[in-house]
Computed example of a mutant assay.
Amino acid sequence: MDLRAIEKNYERMSDSKLIEVITTNAQGIQPEVFGIIENEIRKRNLDPNLLNAVISQNEHHSLEDIYRHSELLRDLPCPICDNSRDKLNGTVCYTIKSIIITTFTATKIVIACPDCLDKQNRKAIISCSLLGWWGIPFGILKTPVYIYRNLKAKDENRTSDSNGALLSFTAEHIGQIKAFENNPEKLKNLIRDMKYLGF
């Protein structure tokens, strides 16, 4: 392993790129690289908690740890309606769109208050119902499945504890959550900027 080349690579990154890499893509790094990242954080005068993101991505997390970090997200205001009255939770929205012989599918995790989660699932169901059927054969076969998946996801929107979608999101983003656990605005941005997967 060429540590000097790794160091140069980190030096070339902008602050925002470095933060993105070390909070989302630091799984499996070698112990020698921790020191390089720590020096780069210190040299740029970045938040020292960013190193926690690197460490957390290379640790095994217990279910209790994931639950605890999911509670940090649940206490945020809703990123869609800005409501602070209800605790947040997660849902998965499944969509399908078809054009003759081509069918596109997408999956998106949404973190929001229960009312907004219900609205997101309803929108996905309507979208599937209107746009999913028009592809042969997959649109016809998959559309009922995607509608059913949205209905099942909607059933978990009002659970009193963190549901499966929120726990899955927390486990996947634990590095970012740990790095920004004292910065509610960054956590709110994290859950607001969700992207569709596989579309």
Rank of each mutant, 00 (worst) to 15 (best):
W133L: 12
P77G: 10
N49F: 10
A171D: 01
G139Q: 03
K186S: 11
I29L: 14
P79E: 04
N49Y: 06
G132W: 09
L76M: 10
L190V: 04
F104V: 01
K154M: 04
G198R: 10
Q30E: 09
I147E: 13
D2I: 03
R149N: 10
A26S: 11
G175P: 05
V33R: 10
A26P: 08
Y10V: 13
I100A: 10
F34K: 11
I140E: 05
I191F: 04
A171I: 00
S56P: 05
S162T: 03
P144E: 11
L88V: 12
E7V: 10
I41R: 04
F34G: 02
S168W: 04
F104E: 04
Q27R: 15
M194R: 03
I191T: 00
I41L: 08
F104T: 00
R4K: 12
E181D: 02
E156S: 15
R149C: 00
I19P: 13
R192W: 00
Y67N: 14
K195Q: 05
I37H: 06
V92H: 09
L50I: 06
S168C: 04
Q27S: 15
T102K: 14
K87R: 15
D193S: 07
R42L: 10
S168T: 12
H173I: 00
M194Q: 14
K97S: 10
I147M: 10
G28F: 07
K186H: 07
L51E: 08
A124V: 03
D75R: 15
C116S: 09
L73K: 11
Q176V: 02
E38F: 05
N89K: 06
D161R: 13
V145G: 02
S70A: 13
N150R: 03
H69I: 05
A179P: 03
L63V: 13
N9W: 04
I147K: 04
E59F: 14
S14L: 12
G35V: 11
S84E: 11
R4L: 15
M194S: 06
L88R: 07
L190S: 02
C113L: 13
F104P: 00
I41M: 04
A5S: 13
L51H: 09
E40T: 14
E11W: 08
I41N: 10
